[in-house]
């Protein structure tokens, strides 16, 4: 059984001459929560897009355990056990919550087109099993009462949860969360923190992009700080709070 350790070596990304990420290296330890923080535009989401294969990387290497993710297509990376959520929540708004989460089970379906068209009993069984798994997941995330509502009708916090449920439904080794607390109130953030720790408990490696320092301090084992596409600090939450480079990078933002 592999554990989901992510290693990133000197990855870089340019957009038409503008450097978005410049030689960033870090490691997200298996079974730990690693925070990726930094001011807006520091290259956090770009890094996440490179890990998931959405952006081809210009230089460097990304490994998940023994597998090379560099230059691999997004759906193959997903198949290797990487799941993510999006900063600007991307749910299929007119479909039900259950249908959204069921999309996460895509890779677990084994029956081919001929079986589907022949309506073999195995197909329905597979579908029922996937559905049962998703309903359990919704219960664990305490959104099972919403299973049949349209995803677009939900509150912000609930939509975030559905997105996390969808990612978990794919049974990942590595879960990437892109600003999951954005737009949440204090109580919701607290519940989100508990959820992330609960995910950590189940043995999934988490890479978390977040602005909320309290949340990051609460859940992260290790933090990587980016600024202007470069890594400026790395360490435990306590070390990061003391780091002069980090304080400088955030200065002027703290009072906002």
């Amino acid at each position: 059984m592999t554990d989901g350790e992510l290693k990133v070596w000197q990855i870089a990304k340019h957009f038409q001459g503008i450097v978005a990420v410049d030689s960033v290296s870090f490691c997200a330890k298996a079974g730990h929560v690693t925070g990726l923080i930094g001011p807006n535009g520091s290259g956090k989401t770009t890094t996440m897009n490179m890990i998931t294969g959405l952006y081809p990387i210009d230089a460097g290497r990304i490994m998940l355990d023994d597998e090379n993710l560099t230059g691999v297509e997004p759906h193959r990376i997903a198949a290797l056990g990487v799941a993510r959520t999006f900063q600007n929540i991307r749910l299929l708004a007119d479909q039900t919550v259950l249908a959204n989460v069921m999309l996460g089970t895509h890779r677990s379906h084994r029956k081919g087109l001929p079986s589907v068209f022949a309506r073999l009993p195995g197909v329905a069984a597979e579908e029922r099993a996937a559905q049962a798994r998703c309903r359990t997941l919704l219960e664990e995330l305490r959104i099972d009462r919403l299973a049949d509502s349209a995803a677009g009708d939900l509150s912000y916090g609930d939509r975030r949860r559905v997105e996390i449920a969808r990612a978990l439904a794919s049974q990942p080794r590595l879960l990437l969360l892109d600003e999951p607390a954005a737009g949440m109130n204090h109580a919701e953030k607290g519940r989100l923190g508990d959820l992330i720790l609960q995910i950590r408990q189940s043995g999934i490696t988490v890479l978390l992009i977040e602005h909320d320092i309290d949340l990051v301090s609460k859940v992260c084992d290790h933090i990587v700080v980016l600024n202007f596409g470069r890594e400026i600090a790395e360490g435990t939450p306590a070390e990061i709070r003391q780091s002069p480079a980090v304080i400088e990078a955030y200065l002027g933002r703290e009072d906002a």
């Binding site: 294969g53 759906h75 299929l92 996460g104 895509h106």
Partner: peptide, 18 residues
């Protein structure tokens, strides 16, 4: 389900392994 996802948001479909 995968086709519906592609139609609405192909980035999501990809990251879910489609």
């Amino acid at each position: 389900r995968a086709i519906a996802a592609i139609k609405q948001d192909d980035v999501v479909a990809q990251t879910m392994g489609v």
